[in-house]
């Protein structure tokens, strides 16, 4: 049994975007705060801290996760993906990110990280989504700037492009 005492700081280790990271956290520290304040991965944003807005969504062991509803201590030993891990290289955007830029699917960009994580997770598992699928998925995110339709369009475009890319790869 692992018991972490309330007033102590305890080491938390996990893989972030494929790389091991480690820092200390009190048991009550949220994963969102841990990522941002202890690891310095500030791309994941905090918008409501009650699980509604979706800005803080990350992937933990293959599961979409509201990092504001998760303790840092809970993810010890897990694999975590965040927006910082989406681009293939620092100077290049991934297909989904490019589709967002092309379609003006972001304005202030504050909610964007969470939306990208949901879409990245979903499109990997559902290569040919309908518009209704995308709208259902994204109903778990709040965006105040765009009116959503450019986001839906970007997602559908990215899905189509990803399908072509996968096709090409398997042909090759």
């Amino acid at each position: 049994m692992t018991r972490l005492s309330a007033d102590g700081r305890h080491p938390v280790r996990f893989k972030l975007n494929g790389r091991p990271v480690e820092a200390e956290a009190e048991p009550r520290m949220l994963l969102s705060d841990f990522l941002r304040q202890q690891i310095g991965a500030t791309g994941t944003h905090v918008g409501c801290e009650h699980g509604v807005c979706g800005a803080c969504t990350v992937i933990v062991d293959g599961m979409l996760t509201r990092s504001c509803l998760t303790l840092a201590a809970q993810v010890d030993g897990c694999e975590i993906q965040t927006v910082e891990g989406l681009a293939p290289s620092p100077d290049r955007l991934g297909i989904l990110q490019q589709a967002f830029r092309r379609n003006h699917a972001l304005q202030c960009g504050f909610c964007t990280a969470g939306i990208l994580m949901s879409l990245d997770h979903y499109l990997r598992r559902h290569p040919a989504p309908s518009e209704a699928d995308i709208r259902d998925l994204l109903s778990g995110h709040l965006c105040r700037c765009t009116g959503y339709t450019p986001i839906v369009k970007a997602a559908l475009e990215a899905a189509a492009e990803l399908a072509t890319t996968t096709q090409e790869k398997s042909d090759a």
């Binding site: 049994m1 692992t2 018991r3 972490l4 005492s5 309330a6 007033d7 009190e26 048991p27 009550r28 949220l30 705060d33 801290e49 009650h50 303790l71 201590a73 809970q74 010890d76």
Partner: peptide
């Protein structure tokens, strides 16, 4: 909007729970 302090147990068996 941060939780109050608590101890955290990662249970390794139902008996521990």
């Amino acid at each position: 909007m941060k939780p109050a302090a608590f101890d955290y147990v990662r249970a390794e068996s139902v008996n521990e729970v």
